[in-house]
Design a protein around this nucleic acid. Structure first.
Lengths: 226, 226
DNA sequence: CCTGACGCGATACGGTGTATCGGAGGAATA
DNA sequence: TATTCCTCCGATACACCGTATCGCGTCAGG
């Protein structure tokens, strides 16, 4: 052991003063790269060259960090378009795209009320663009579209992960539906299901999302301008 | 320490021979009582008077246990009714009720493809009841309804938990919308949002769910029988 | 120069999911 | 019956988690 310890490498600049924002960005980078289960306070701290406990000066709890991550992504969503239908479609599509950019969002979306600044700004943008719609019905309409999007993207990402895990691409999956399901269908227990899967049209994820969204928008149309 | 150890309490009957089903039931009991985060393999095992490692003879992983829990609840859902609209409405309502009986389901639903026997049986029941509907469109229709339900109940349970956490009842929550939001609205950053929240009709969870569902069913009607 | 407060981060604690492996118990064989 | 083998159970262990605690180094004030 040395008698005098080198006091500090004096030239390493104090990179940046650590902040909520830097913490959240680091967490999102980890989640984008390796999924949500790769986000631990220890790993986030390590990515910032800092002890784990340092983070508690900026966030109260891990759940708060997750909320901040979600809100950060909500900052990427800004619906646009003319007329209520375009606005709602844009809201749905841009939200879906955000989830595809950040798969881990599928695990968190809808799981907690989103009251962060970016989520509120998104809501403000939507409602402002929907200014012409009856104030008593606009909230249920937006809520319904959000609900549909949340459920649809969750299923979509879940399916995507399952395909990735089995190593099958979409085509194989839909044709064979997995050896397990083939076997199950072969038992004849689920005739209606088997018929639909084998004879029904097979749609890709984009089409499925759009069709369901169109159902919903068509139904909304009847109440808004019908 | 005794010279002879009591070999075993001979009268305690070997209660039941441990099975997937008993494990899943125990896990569901824990989750119903204390939430999903109370479900750990150690606690489930303890509830069954068994060492944690015993469980691995029946399940491969904790995720598999969670899948089995979800599938077990799917066994409670059996839509009924005459005509496609009644069937779909019943599908949505009974699924929602199942989530309200098992709040933890909101955390899991839609998170993985459900291919268990009960989920398939639910699908079979729905499709069989929808026998009259065009085979090319029935799948997107059911998928859309499921997506809406998943997103809607997630938001619903999330909001319910937030209210419970703040100790506010629904009325207070909607009127004050929390001191934080009041303060935020007071800044004038979100005029459209503030207007809608303050002037729009306030609906309870049942109404909100039903209205969104009606939007969707109305939109489906146009494609099915319109 | 001394003292005090303060804030950082090392350490610690109780928990998690699950891999490993020694040993007990029963079955099969001599 | 005695002995060997095999199987399967569960104690132990490992790596990791979120976070409470608290000693120490550092700096401000007297």
């Amino acid at each position: 052991m040395l008698v005098w310890e080198r006091p500090e490498p004096p030239d390493r600049p104090v990179l940046a003063p650590l902040s909520r924002e830097r913490i959240v960005r680091a967490a999102i980078r980890l989640a984008d790269a390796d999924g949500l289960e790769a986000v631990s306070l220890r790993k986030v701290a390590a990515a910032l060259d800092v002890g784990p406990m340092r983070l508690y000066g900026y966030i109260a709890t891990k759940d708060e960090l997750l909320d901040l991550m979600v809100d950060a992504v909500y900052g990427e969503i800004r619906p646009a378009g003319d007329g209520w239908r375009e606005v709602l479609r844009s809201l749905a599509e841009t939200t879906r795209q955000a989830v595809h950019r950040h798969e881990w969002l599928a695990d968190l979306i809808g799981g907690r009320p989103q009251l962060g600044p970016n989520a509120l700004a998104r809501g403000e943008a939507v409602l402002a663009a929907l200014g012409g719609v009856d104030v008593d019905i606009v909230m249920p309409v937006v809520t319904a579209v959000d609900a549909y999007v949340i459920g649809a993207v969750r299923r979509e990402i879940a399916e995507q992960r399952a395909e990735r895990a089995t190593g099958m691409d979409k085509q194989q999956w839909q044709v064979t539906f997995g050896p397990y399901l083939e076997r199950t269908f072969a038992t004849g227990q689920f005739p209606a299901l088997a018929t639909v899967v084998r004879e029904g049209a097979h749609l890709d994820a984009d089409e499925t999302f759009r069709i369901g969204l169109d159902f919903l928008l068509d139904g909304i149309e009847a109440r808004i301008s019908g």
